[in-house]
């Protein structure tokens, strides 16, 4: 009963957390808490086989599958708050409260009598006793289960498989496409700039700075930009600017630079990495 008293509040809190957390990954982790606690409760209810199965199948296989799909679908696929049916959330919560109160009160009213306990049924071991029932009385259901599992595996394969509609582009075609896009709209021919170059950090969330001090938007992963976990670049630009302006020897160099370098606030994100050569103000010595 100690296990129950400790785990029941944790389980209810974690389950409530699934309702309220914004990110699906956090919901998956809270679900893992509920399932592991449930496994311990199975052990307390004299079901050691289900204890192992719960951990292996649920937390080991099903939750990992959830996390895999979350990774494929995109972690930032968070909930929208917009209600499509008006008042649906309110009525759902009300209905849920009614259901919960009814169930809990109803279960609390009945008296189940004395607990028989499984010590007699588990006499020769829980797994042996389960196997005896499973392969005698429930053998038909067990066989049907195999059909279900095969159907599920086939269904997953058919659904997840994607037929390729166009032939795979070869290296030569990709190169020709790049050169064509360079000739037509001047897209940079070479590889994208690496994040953090010339900036104060080389983390992937830090945009690279171009030689003129502006931000190279292309250097960031699109996913990071969409998720909003990008370091604010203007701060970097200003910090680099200050470091350049006040060199270690204490001589301010700002008067040697063209006026475009000292006013860092005017630099918008417009100047991406075009065919940007070194600007006149790019003194290599500093």
């Amino acid at each position: 009963m100690i296990a129950f008293n400790v785990l029941a509040p944790i389980m209810v809190l974690a389950a409530l957390g699934i309702l309220f957390v914004r990110k699906a990954v956090h919901a998956a982790l809270l679900l893992a808490v509920v399932m592991i606690s449930l496994a311990v409760l199975y052990a307390a209810l004299e079901a050691p086989f289900l204890f192992a199965v719960q951990i292996i199948v649920y937390t080991g296989a099903i939750l990992m599958l959830f996390l895999f799909v979350l990774m494929l679908v995109g972690v930032d696929a968070s909930d929208s708050v917009v209600e499509t049916i008006r008042g649906q959330r309110l009525f759902a919560i009300l209905g849920g409260l009614v259901l919960g109160v009814t169930l809990v009160l109803g279960v609390g009213q009945i008296s189940l009598g004395t607990v028989v306990g499984l010590s007699e049924a588990n006499d020769g071991g829980n797994i042996e006793a389960l196997a005896n029932i499973l392969f005698s009385r429930y053998v038909f259901a067990f066989e049907v289960t195999s059909a279900l599992l095969i159907t599920a595996a086939m269904g997953a394969m058919v659904l997840a498989h994607r037929e390729r509609l166009t032939p795979k582009p070869s290296q030569a075609q990709l190169a020709a496409e790049r050169v064509r896009s360079y000739g037509e709209d001047g897209r940079h021919l070479g590889p994208l700039p690496a994040p953090g170059v010339f900036a104060r950090h080389n983390a992937v969330g830090t945009p690279a700075l171009l030689p003129d001090g502006s931000v190279a938007e292309d250097s960031l992963s699109r996913v990071l930009t969409a998720r909003g976990t990008v370091r604010p670049a203007p701060r970097d630009v200003e910090a680099v600017q200050r470091a350049i302006d006040f060199a270690p020897d204490g001589v301010p160099h700002s008067e040697t630079a063209p006026d475009g370098r000292t006013t860092s606030s005017s630099r918008g994100p417009g100047s991406t990495s075009g065919p940007a050569g070194p600007t006149p103000g790019d003194e290599g010595g500093n």
């Binding site: 209810v12 389950a15 309702l19 509920v34 649906q88 759902a92 919560i93 849920g96 409260l97 919960g100």
Partner: peptide
């Protein structure tokens, strides 16, 4: 209780 929370979650 857990069933109720799950049901509310499905709906909301």
């Amino acid at each position: 209780i857990l069933f109720t929370i799950g049901a509310v979650g499905v709906l909301t």
